[in-house]
Design a protein around this nucleic acid. Structure first.
Lengths: 318, 318
DNA sequence: CGCCGCTCTGCTCATATGAGCAGAAACCAC
DNA sequence: GTGGTTTCTGCTCATATGAGCAGAGCGGCG
């Protein structure tokens, strides 16, 4: 064990009296037999060396410095980072991110007239955290295929309806499976006036709100039966780090399986990249690779994430 | 989810700018369009509600407020509480407590000429954390029986020798098993001039340093072969919360099995209670019950423990 | 051994924040 | 609607802390 110098230990003693006992620097000096100027330097030194940790513990807290650094590093318009401090596990963290996304959505100006939304657990959480009347007259349109083949919360319909209802708007669903087995069938569905109209509406939306899926067996696409676990393993072998609106991308943000992509119904990634406002809500340790792919390949203009993911994104970016 | 009032959210925003961004209260006010006095009140409110957490993260840090409260509540002379912040698991926490115990021992005045010590993992840690020359001329005497029947670190001999060596003193071992099977054999060993002399020296020590054992199967006494797991189960059934210098006590600090106690070699609990300086080092979640028994029944004059144990002791004390 | 350069210190003055007060605003009861 | 009470606000003055400076002290080199 390295011996620490006397000043380091003095700085800890001074910090204990100053922060824990609420003594003034003068009082700390009297107790430790030092001048108040020396005490001030010791406290500054303790802070500089990271021995003092000041955290803001609240469900609505943000990490402003990380937010600014993410914007500068990745050229995105906004970043919202929720802190790790005081969270109890992954669910709490996702709730925090969902709350932050809901707050951001409510603060968007001008209010989006048409909001394109994806579906999944995270989007469901955001819908729940939006307050009643978060806006007025927002029409919500579903941007990736998928109808509820099971009863779990987070279905496309439930999510879109909830967001629209709370904004006194209407929800437009995309009445199509997420992925078709045959390219011809997919083209027929897209050519249908009803589905084609929804896809056109999705393409013209003024803002988008979506999450990303991890490239794993618990993916919503696997649980919904569109892909098998073997399908996902193959996609991972080909470099997939996750999916955005049902489309699997690699670390560079490129489609890993063009054939699968062709059979996938919903907003294209090119259209998403051209959007003026696209809010990606991506939090949790398992989503770091896909978060990185999203921010580095222009797939979002706003990222809502957690502190650990933000630090991971910034750690290897240089 | 309860709606929080606007001031609570404002206080979080203000705290982020003040603590994370290092803005002055004037600057925070300009940004949030508030007066600096309002900002000051918001920050004070955030602190009062516990949204601001200031922690001192250092191996030598202490929790002075908890220490004072423990002394007042339990009437002990000194309490040393090491913080949980920044520790990586139970081993790190025990190392912190051992370091704090070593620091305290080195600061004892007058320097104890004869120090009675117990043995076990915690005492071994303390021995390791003591610095060379922590004192001069301290003779160390073993206060509970037990010779090393296995090779692990923490044996009585190794611990006592290490503490004595670092203080340029001598170690006196107690050449006896911890527990004898027959009362007659125990009495014979105690009557032997050599063992009797060591026990006398132990009874007359100027200070004591010991830890407590949990009442479980991984007890040092079980691992050393003095007791079987069934023996310990029976002791627990009878109310044992742990052992002090090899003697099992209940929540009130009373011996739970007088017959076993009679066959146990070493310092008696009555002698320990009469000591002017007895330092108990008891840290870790599993040791809360025995820590409480020790401090409430006059078995120590100084307690070295961790933050969680301190909070647990104070939580139900009223 | 002396000199030079760097670091540390105590201090003065400026800045930042807190305490307490007076007045305004909000709320409640009649 | 009015009056009284409580809470909140902006402010003044006091206190606490920071910035920058001059001098002391320490260490290294010639």
């Amino acid at each position: 064990m390295d011996t620490i110098d006397n000043d380091e230990l003095l700085s800890i003693r001074a910090a204990e009296l100053y922060y824990d006992e609420n003594k003034t620097q003068d009082e700390v000096g009297a107790i430790l037999k030092l001048t108040r100027w020396k005490v001030g330097r010791l406290l500054a030194s303790a802070k500089e060396k990271g021995f003092i940790r000041i955290e803001i513990v609240h469900p609505r807290a943000r990490k402003l410095t990380l937010e600014r650094t993410l914007c500068e590093r990745f050229g995105i318009r906004d970043a919202i980072v929720v802190p790790a401090a005081g969270t109890q596990g992954a669910d709490d963290l996702r709730a925090r991110a969902a709350q932050a996304a809901a707050d951001y959505l409510a603060s968007l100006r001008p209010v989006p007239r048409v909001l394109g939304v994806s579906w999944g657990r995270t989007l469901h959480d955001v819908a729940e955290h939006l307050s009643e009347g978060w806006a007025t007259g927002v029409n919500v349109v579903q941007i990736n295929g998928g109808v509820s083949v099971n009863q779990r919360a987070g279905t496309a319909a439930a999510t879109a309806f909830e967001i629209a209802r709370k904004a006194s708007g209407q929800a437009t669903l995309l009445p199509s499976p997420a992925i078709l087995e045959r390219l011809e069938t997919k083209r027929s569905i897209e050519a249908d006036r009803t589905v084609g109209g929804v896809l056109g509406m999705a393409a013209d939306a003024s803002a988008y709100l979506y999450s990303a899926g991890v490239a794993g067996h618990d993916s919503a696409l696997v649980e919904s039966g569109y892909l098998t676990p073997n399908d996902v393993d193959e996609l991972v072998r080909r470099g997939a780090v996750g999916d955005v609106v049902g489309r699997y991308i690699d670390a560079a943000g490129m489609i890993v399986d063009p054939s699968l992509n062709e059979r996938t119904v919903g907003l294209s990634l090119d259209t998403l990249r051209r959007a003026t406002t696209s809010v990606a809500v991506i939090a949790g340790a398992g989503k770091i690779p896909v978060a990185r792919a999203v921010v580095t390949s222009g797939l979002c203009t706003v990222l809502v994430t957690d502190e650990a993911t933000a630090l991971a994104l910034l750690d290897t970016g240089s």
